[in-house]
């Protein structure tokens, strides 16, 4: 058998990339999704952080996922390279998870956090989520960039902070619509919604659609 047979085919896990600037809440979102979906779906996580174990430790500490379901990829100063131009280490991590855990329904891949131009390769993921937060003000969706414009789901996180930073959510909503056309955008406060309900629902829909063929 070819050990490098392409990771395609009906039975493999749905792979969802989670990108966005540092600190926007990607790891918090992964934790929330593990909490919401961990009991229903066979899931695993790949992290791309420069802290070799921090994201994994966070998930372990919060008891959302056992260690054997988490793999850390190292990215050599270039987090976007590892998710877009040279995806080999991430593919190897997914392959290792699938060979050690057996078939999976869902693999979440958290990017190391970069700027608004970072997007995932279609050779690595099936769908991508881009996470921004309101704390940098309400201009982020207007600025656009490939993450905001093309992600399959845009998450605008930390809405609890909006009053504190004077961010107008209706402006963000309007600008996101203008940039994204029909692609969905959800507002979220992971501080308040510990299960990331709208994102978990979106993923459930994808998994169900995939199972239906």
């Amino acid at each position: 058998m070819d050990p490098h047979a392409p990771l395609t085919g009906g039975s493999r896990a749905l792979r969802v990339g989670i990108g966005g600037p540092v600190g926007s809440g990607k790891t918090a979102l992964v934790a929330a999704l593990c909490r919401a979906l961990g009991a229903q779906l066979r899931l695993a996580v790949v992290t791309n952080d420069i802290y070799t174990t921090e994201d994994a430790d966070f998930l372990l500490r919060n008891g959302v996922l056992p260690a054997e379901r988490i793999r850390a990829v190292e990215t050599g100063c270039c987090p976007h390279t590892a998710i877009r131009d040279d995806i080999s280490a991430n593919l190897d991590a997914v392959e290792d998870l699938e060979s050690s855990l057996g078939p999976l329904d869902l693999v979440l891949l958290e990017s190391g956090g970069d700027n608004l131009t970072a997007t995932f390769s279609k050779g690595l993921i099936d769908q991508q989520i881009f996470v921004v937060d309101v704390s940098g003000g309400d201009k982020v969706p207007r600025k656009g960039g490939p993450g905001v414009t093309t992600a399959d789901l845009l998450v605008i996180n930390k809405t609890d902070l909006a009053p504190l930073v004077g961010a107008d959510l209706s402006v963000m909503d309007r600008d996101a619509r203008a940039r994204r056309g029909d692609l969905p955008t959800v507002f979220l406060s992971l501080a308040e919604d510990r299960g990331a309900t709208p994102v978990a629902d979106w993923i459930r829909g994808l998994v169900a659609a995939r199972a239906a063929g």
């Binding site: 990215t75 050599g76 131009d85 040279d86």
Partner: peptide, 11 residues
């Protein structure tokens, strides 16, 4: 060096 062969992550 642009060959996607994992080298970028090693020093």
């Amino acid at each position: 060096g642009r060959l996607p062969s994992g080298g970028h992550a090693h020093s």
